[in-house]
Amino acid sequence: MSDIRKSLVLHGGLIALLLLLGFVLPAYHHGNLARVMVLAVYAMGYNVLFGYTGLLSLGHAMFFAAGMYGMGLTIQHLGFSAEAALLSGVVAAFLLSTVVGLLALRTTGVAFMIVTLMFAQTGYLVVLYFGEWTRGDEGFVIQKASRVIAGIDVSDPANRYLTALALFAVCLWIILKLVQAPFGKVLIAIRENEDRARMLGYDIFRHKLVAVIVSGTISGTAGAFYGLLFGYAGASFATVQYSIFPLLWVLLGGAGTVTGPLVGALFMFYLIDITSGLTSAYMLFAGVALVLLTLFARQGLVGEIRRRFAPWLP
């Protein structure tokens, strides 16, 4: 089988499996998996920048939150329909990532990490500062009546699951296309050896900027859908912790792999779900996982599989 065929079978099979699970899973895990799929989209957006371009952002929560508030605030205060609100969430993330990209890409390495961290921290504080509209840490509920996309009530668990799956499938397809296209190969080249890529005549800044915008917009789209599907927007999604999560998921699942973010998000979600039943200090496990991953498994789960068994994995 050619690599393209294998990839088609694998990813098509993954979507089919998720679809099947939507009909057979018990309610609790059904709800969890819907969440994980949207969070995986967030991580897939993050992965475009970190995994494929080699730029480590510590501030992606600002894009997730831009999508979430771009959606939520327009519903809450401007009476937008769900479709228009989702679009405004995506646009908000697109605009923010463009501005952040133009500024932050003047730096590299550690400075880039800190600049993105600082911008995200600013974003979080802005959410708090405009607490009159955002209701700060407490957040606000998006009314059931507003949560209807094209006539489909997404507050219904079955519809919600299918919407999450559709979003996941579309993003998976976009990212597969992206990383197999010449543009994606240049991103990988920048990750591997930026100087060499420049001296092959590629405009590094432009490629990185597009990567930041694609990454931020996908992450923001996940934020907009997360808010709409689960009916809530709150400042906790803008905290540093929510910038660390996609890094953790991607490291765990495998940076620079298409399916890694889903695997990482799923694994970590259940780890935290189980441990938070035992202790309120569940972030301890996130911390331990981060340290162990940087020490022993830089490739992540899917990365290790690719290295050992399946070098064709995109």
């Binding site: 080249a189 591997e192 050896n193 100087d195 060499r196 001296m199």
Partner: peptide
Amino acid sequence: YTFQITSIFGRL
């Protein structure tokens, strides 16, 4: 331009 110190994409 080819680099004086070999510069390739080592993992590709």
